[in-house]
Design a binder for these strands. Structure first.
Lengths: 214, 214
DNA sequence: GTCTATAAACTGATAGAC
DNA sequence: GTCTATCAGTTTATAGAC
């Protein structure tokens, strides 16, 4: 809570932790843009305003940077989704919880696009060692949605002629991909989230009488 | 129609065109697995059973291989979709045409996963020069779906409270992503396509009376 | 905490033998 | 049509000055 600009006495450093964060942010942006292997540490260093050698003061290796970028991509989304759903009344219907989850997933994703898009684009392209570490947090988030959907199914609010696993994979996959084509110039985020939720809930066809969102 | 194993008289070649196809196939597989920049031509050559230098007899550059892999990814899907829709009766309702399009898109994609997944994964990560060339065939396929959806909208079969552009981007994006998680061991392809189509048409919630698919 | 300099390995692409 | 050999440039990571 006190003065954060209290600089060290030695050399020409200002704030080591800020540099670390800048490296992570620029790494996410470049991983998203060019892929993991294609991104050189020199590029990351240039973008973060330091020299390549300096990166190794903050990180042990390129793969450690990758690990932090990947985890951050999921965690941002996961935390936003939980916050949205926890804010609902205890007796809220499952459809409202799912709607809150969709809105939270979209919000977290589209407001931290470099981390989430990097995660989505490069996860399939990284060494198995990096995948293995990251799988834990991925599995957690998937389980969270599975429980949500199974509860909705048990309450009779979810369609029963498709497996909840396929529903989860389809919905999360569709949401994830929006970060690749979402264009804020086409309208407000709220309106965008409303349209996506309507399509996921009621489909793309016209129905005589919809009991989904209205 | 005659003997295809008629080999040339010189050196130790068997069939030049088959080698070319093998290089393309292995390149697609490796681009999908590790990304474009991360894949070395030595790896491609090894996988295709030739030496690195030999690639340059069949292709001018790494970027030319990329171009052919990308185009093939879209064209396979586009041609399957058109074949499915053209096979319908002239007076088929738009919902049937869209269903045929979805089934064709899934089929083309899941049966040529290396080309379509490579396309999807690396398109956002390649040099602008490669993107520009590839954009033409992408735009064509997008236009095809836009016309399909706008016709369905004009006929009153498509929901009108979301733009056809958003519907197209959402549906195609969701379909594309299935190649990342589709597991043939979970059931037949026909059953998979049926579930996906049902979700896209009628949504994930339960409706009192659905007029979509039955 | 950041720098410069450098090691050791790998990259796309070319030249020319067979 | 495929090979070997090689060029010029780039890569991650380390060592040590400041």
């Amino acid at each position: 809570m006190n003065d954060k600009s209290a600089s060290k006495s030695a050399g020409h450093d200002l704030d080591g932790n800020a540099t670390r964060e800048r490296i992570l942010l620029e790494a996410a942006r470049l991983f998203r843009q060019h892929g993991y292997a294609a991104t050189t540490l020199r590029e990351v260093a240039d973008a973060a305003g330091v020299k390549a050698g300096s990166i190794y003061y903050h990180f042990e290796s390129k793969e450690q940077i990758l690990g932090e970028v990947l985890d951050k991509g999921i965690k941002i989304v996961y935390e936003t989704v939980r916050a949205r759903i926890d804010a609902l009344p205890k007796d809220a219907p499952w459809r409202d919880r799912i709607a809150a989850g969709i809105e939270g997933h979209l919000w977290g994703m589209l407001h931290h696009g470099d981390f989430t898009s990097a995660n989505m684009r490069i996860y399939g392209q990284i060494p198995e060692s990096a995948k293995a570490k990251h799988r834990v947090v991925r599995r957690e988030y998937a389980d969270y949605w599975d429980q949500l959907l199974q509860s909705a199914l048990a309450a009779g609010e979810l369609r029963a002629d498709a497996s909840t696993t396929i529903i989860r994979l389809f919905v999360i996959g569709a949401l994830n991909w929006t970060v690749e084509w979402y264009n804020p110039e086409r309208g407000s985020f709220q309106d965008f989230a409303r349209q996506i939720t309507a399509i996921i809930f009621d489909g793309i066809l016209v129905h005589e009488k919809s009991l989904g969102t209205q």
